[in-house]
Lab assay of single mutants.
Amino acid sequence: MAAAAAAGAGPEMVRGQVFDVGPRYTNLSYIGEGAYGMVCSAYDNVNKVRVAIKKISPFEHQTYCQRTLREIKILLRFRHENIIGINDIIRAPTIEQMKDVYIVQDLMETDLYKLLKTQHLSNDHICYFLYQILRGLKYIHSANVLHRDLKPSNLLLNTTCDLKICDFGLARVADPDHDHTGFLTEYVATRWYRAPEIMLNSKGYTKSIDIWSVGCILAEMLSNRPIFPGKHYLDQLNHILGILGSPSQEDLNCIINLKARNYLLSLPHKNKVPWNRLFPNADSKALDLLDKMLTFNPHKRIEVEQALAHPYLEQYYDPSDEPIAEAPFKFDMELDDLPKEKLKELIFEETARFQPGYRS
């Protein structure tokens, strides 16, 4: 834990890192770190609560700039109880001085990944967590956004079992017609939660990839272990087919990539493993919904509104309290091709509203 900075004593240090967030945020305490930044909790002297502050230093890398800009653009436009918001952003007053960006968010005690390492969940908890994931996802999908990296560590939890989806750095506007060349190379989302079509096709992607990830998360809540822990690309596919069985001819016809289709045709026939054999203690309604989410063919996979209306979630289902976005989200430009200098300018502009004396 960093010592509390005395008023006016300059930035606090946390594990050798400068955290320049005073005077409003003090009493910093280390939480963890990701690929390009550290997260601390801090005391907000204005709202009198502890908050989470993520320090991001992305400006050396085009990919990190892209992810940072995506996350900020999306989260500043989203407003939903099951999606983490941005409360404040701290950065230098000029673009030349801006080396880091500090993002202030609600402090959540833990995440689903940490929880599943230590606790076996009751059916009631599984049901409530799944409902909140789908409630947040309904809003995301209504904005025409794909999260693309749903996994237990991106689901934040607090002691009252509130759940918030975080990390929109890989999110995209849904565009089933656009052929994202190089899709697989830039697709760094965790393999275990990846839909089979991501490994088999490169053309376009749809909201059904997020539903697949939610199915993987439900299976993990039922058993405290990942359902498809593939060691590499082909191993991942083999794990999936080992449980779902061989795809039907109709399902194979959806695979545009001939090499991928021929690979699947070359494999020995596998039978589907019954879900109640894998999860003998699970609620039968939970397994019915799991089956509809972990469907090989993305066109037959359940959609988020149908999933919310499934009998497993009937005690929570309330369409009048499951809000959607006001308007579909649009990125003005494809960020993939922009140089990091341009992305830095866009991050600077996007964060201006939090600067003292800002006038829109």
Rank of each mutant, 00 (worst) to 15 (best):
A2D: 08
A2P: 13
A4G: 06
A4R: 13
A6L: 14
A6G: 09
A7V: 04
G8R: 08
G8K: 12
A9R: 13
P11W: 13
E12D: 15
M13L: 15
M13S: 12
R15Y: 12
R15D: 07
Q17M: 06
D20E: 15
V21E: 15
V21Y: 10
P23K: 00
P23M: 03
P23D: 01
R24W: 00
Y25S: 04
Y25M: 08
T26D: 08
N27F: 05
G32K: 00
E33N: 00
E33L: 00
E33C: 02
G34H: 00
A35Y: 07
A35F: 08
Y36T: 07
G37A: 11
G37K: 09
V39K: 06
C40V: 04
S41K: 07
A42T: 14
Y43I: 02
D44L: 09
V49S: 07
V49F: 05
R50S: 15
R50D: 05
A52S: 14
K54Q: 04
K54F: 02
I56L: 11
P58H: 14
P58N: 01
P58W: 02
H61M: 01
H61P: 05
Q66C: 12
Q66D: 07
R67V: 05
R67D: 00
T68P: 14
L69D: 04
R70E: 11
R70I: 02
E71W: 00
K73M: 14
L75T: 01
L75A: 04
L75H: 00
L76M: 11
R77N: 06
R77K: 05
R79P: 06
R79G: 11
H80S: 05
H80W: 00
E81T: 05
N82W: 13
N82K: 13
G85M: 07
N87W: 01
I89M: 04
P93K: 07
T94P: 13
T94V: 12
I95F: 15
I95T: 05
E96G: 01
M98A: 06
M98L: 14
D100F: 02
Y102N: 15
I103E: 06
V104F: 13
Q105E: 11
Q105G: 10
M108I: 15
M108F: 04
E109Y: 03
T110A: 12
T110G: 06
D111P: 01
L112A: 03
L112C: 02
L112F: 07
L112Q: 15
Y113G: 08
K114H: 12
L115M: 10
L115V: 07
L116T: 04
L116I: 06
T118E: 11
Q119E: 08
Q119Y: 07
L121S: 12
L121W: 09
S122W: 06
N123R: 09
D124C: 04
I126D: 08
C127L: 11
C127G: 08
Y128G: 07
Y128I: 08
L130H: 05
Y131G: 02
I133H: 02
I133R: 06
R135I: 01
G136A: 00
L137W: 01
L137R: 06
K138S: 07
Y139F: 14
Y139L: 13
I140M: 09
H141E: 11
S142T: 13
A143F: 08
V145H: 05
V145S: 03
L146I: 02
L146D: 08
L146C: 03
R148L: 15
R148H: 04
D149C: 07
K151Q: 14
L157R: 06
L157E: 13
L157F: 11
L157Q: 14
N158M: 08
T159G: 10
T160D: 07
T160A: 10
C161P: 01
C161L: 05
D162H: 01
L163A: 06
L163K: 01
K164D: 07
I165W: 10
C166Y: 14
C166Q: 09
D167I: 01
F168M: 10
F168P: 01
G169S: 11
L170T: 04
L170E: 09
L170W: 05
A171D: 09
V173M: 12
V173T: 07
V173K: 11
A174P: 04
P176S: 13
D177C: 05
H178M: 10
D179Y: 15
H180Y: 11
H180E: 12
T181R: 11
F183K: 10
F183Y: 15
L184R: 05
E186V: 13
Y187K: 04
V188Y: 00
W192S: 13
Y193H: 12
A195N: 00
P196Q: 12
P196C: 12
I198S: 04
M199S: 07
L200Y: 11
N201V: 08
G204P: 11
G204D: 07
Y205W: 08
T206Y: 10
T206R: 11
T206K: 13
K207H: 12
K207P: 13
S208Y: 15
I209F: 14
D210N: 11
D210Y: 15
G215P: 13
G215Y: 11
C216A: 11
C216Q: 12
C216W: 02
L218K: 07
A219R: 13
E220S: 08
N224Y: 15
R225K: 06
R225L: 14
I227F: 15
I227N: 14
G230V: 14
K231M: 14
K231T: 05
Y233I: 13
Y233H: 15
D235L: 13
D235K: 06
Q236R: 03
L237A: 10
N238R: 09
N238A: 07
N238W: 11
I243T: 02
G245I: 01
S246Q: 01
S246F: 03
P247F: 01
S248F: 08
S248R: 09
E250L: 03
N253F: 06
C254F: 14
I255T: 04
I255H: 06
I255D: 07
N257A: 06
N257E: 12
A260C: 00
A260G: 05
L264T: 05
L265Y: 06
S266L: 01
K270P: 05
K272G: 08
V273K: 01
P274D: 09
W275D: 11
W275T: 11
R277L: 12
R277H: 07
L278W: 04
L278Y: 06
F279I: 15
F279L: 15
F279S: 13
N281C: 07
A282K: 02
A282N: 00
A282C: 02
D283H: 02
S284K: 07
K285S: 04
A286R: 02
A286M: 01
L287I: 08
D288C: 01
L289F: 04
L290T: 08
M293F: 04
P298C: 05
K300E: 10
K300M: 15
R301I: 15
R301L: 10
I302T: 01
E303F: 01
E303S: 06
A307H: 00
A309S: 14
H310Y: 07
H310D: 02
Y312V: 08
Y312Q: 11
Y312A: 05
Y312D: 07
L313N: 05
L313Y: 02
E314I: 00
Q315E: 03
Q315F: 04
Y317Q: 00
Y317N: 14
D318K: 03
P319D: 10
P319E: 11
S320N: 05
S320R: 04
S320G: 08
E326T: 02
A327T: 08
P328F: 09
P328A: 08
K330N: 11
D332H: 08
M333Q: 04
E334C: 00
L335D: 11
L335P: 07
L335W: 09
D336E: 14
D337P: 03
D337R: 04
P339W: 10
P339K: 13
K340V: 03
E341M: 03
E341A: 06
K342A: 07
K344H: 06
E345S: 01
E345W: 00
I347A: 07
I347S: 14
F348V: 13
F348H: 07
E349W: 00
E350C: 00
T351A: 13
T351P: 11
T351L: 02
R353S: 14
F354L: 14
F354I: 14
Q355A: 02
P356T: 10
P356M: 01
P356E: 11
Y358F: 14
R359D: 12
R359I: 01
S360Y: 15
S360E: 14
